[in-house]
Design a protein around this nucleic acid. Structure first.
Lengths: 164, 164
DNA sequence: TTGAAAATGAAATTCAATTTCATTATCAAG
DNA sequence: CTTGATAATGAAATTGAATTTCATTTTCAA
């Protein structure tokens, strides 16, 4: 399913980029991995997006910058980025894993159109509080949550049922 | 990943069972499908559980009652049950789709231990309100939501890191 | 009773996710 | 600088849940 976003998109500043690279390479050092050209290219490409990218979609973007970088490396690098908090997985239940970058982003959630796949971000601090509260109540060490709302967007409602 | 639940479990009354069967067979009729022995057995088996079952797990349970029923029929019947609201999919992100029955169940959410897989239900009416509110704000016709909290349960925290 | 339509289930297929492995690159120590 | 141990890379193979196919059987309205 196609994955547009209807929110605005500010490209990262040079400074933000350097800060993110710093986080990534400190993480690599910490877990005994190496700094490579490929990982850097992938990180930079990823930060320039604000979409919800599947591994394959990021692969296509990275390929424009360096056609020699393989799918497997994208796949593994996304896992590393998720490990150090620069990326997070968003599960929209359309059969593929998607990632969005989390650098300098406010905590947010998504509402997804089940017809055309478009998503909107929304902000809802209550949900974070709920996580903490419920965790405490049931003696879980709550680490994260997922919250998505599904429905039909205005456009799809107007245009009627899609054929494809 | 194994999927225990730590909530209580009341088996369905004979009356509840009949009511659910009624909903299912009315649905079948409505969409022009037929009433079969297999579908009835699958529904009854499903209602007797309150776990979060993968298709394969339900298949194993059904097989005890009628070893001739195949996996494919379970798979298709679960989709039908979801269509008429008797089942709903719960995505715990452990790589398999799970279903829980929704008949005579209060609206609830799950908190899942990322170590051992155990889950607890919790009740949080605020989340439903939030769905409605956000939908209105962004002009979506909101139909459903997913909300899960992930963390480490008390047992796993005490026992330390699992080996398996 | 009957025949058109649907259901069944074993097997095959699909496809994203993940692993394998031979080759290449990184980098800390000398 | 070397060097060599260790990790990274990427093409290809594998995995496994989800889904489809298809020949046969069952359902049920007329």
């Amino acid at each position: 399913m196609l994955q547009r976003r209807i929110d605005d998109h500010a490209p990262p500043t040079r400074e933000a980029m350097r800060e993110a690279q710093d986080i990534f390479f400190k993480h690599l050092k910490r877990v005994g991995l190496k700094h490579t050209e490929q990982r850097d290219t992938i990180l930079r490409t990823f930060l320039e997006t604000r979409d919800h990218l599947s591994t394959d979609e990021l692969f296509r973007l990275v390929r424009k910058k360096d056609p020699k970088i393989g799918f497997t490396t994208i796949y593994r690098t996304l896992k590393l980025l998720a490990e150090c908090g620069l990326a997070s997985e968003v599960a929209f239940h359309d059969g593929v894993a998607r990632y969005e970058h989390q650098f300098n982003r406010r905590s947010h959630h998504h509402m997804v159109c089940t017809d055309c796949g478009v998503s909107v971000e929304f902000f809802s601090p209550e949900v974070g509080k709920l996580e903490e509260e419920i965790g405490r109540k049931y003696h879980f060490d709550a680490t994260r949550h997922t919250f998505q709302i599904y429905g039909i967007c205005e456009d799809c409602r107007k245009n009627g049922k899609r054929v494809i």
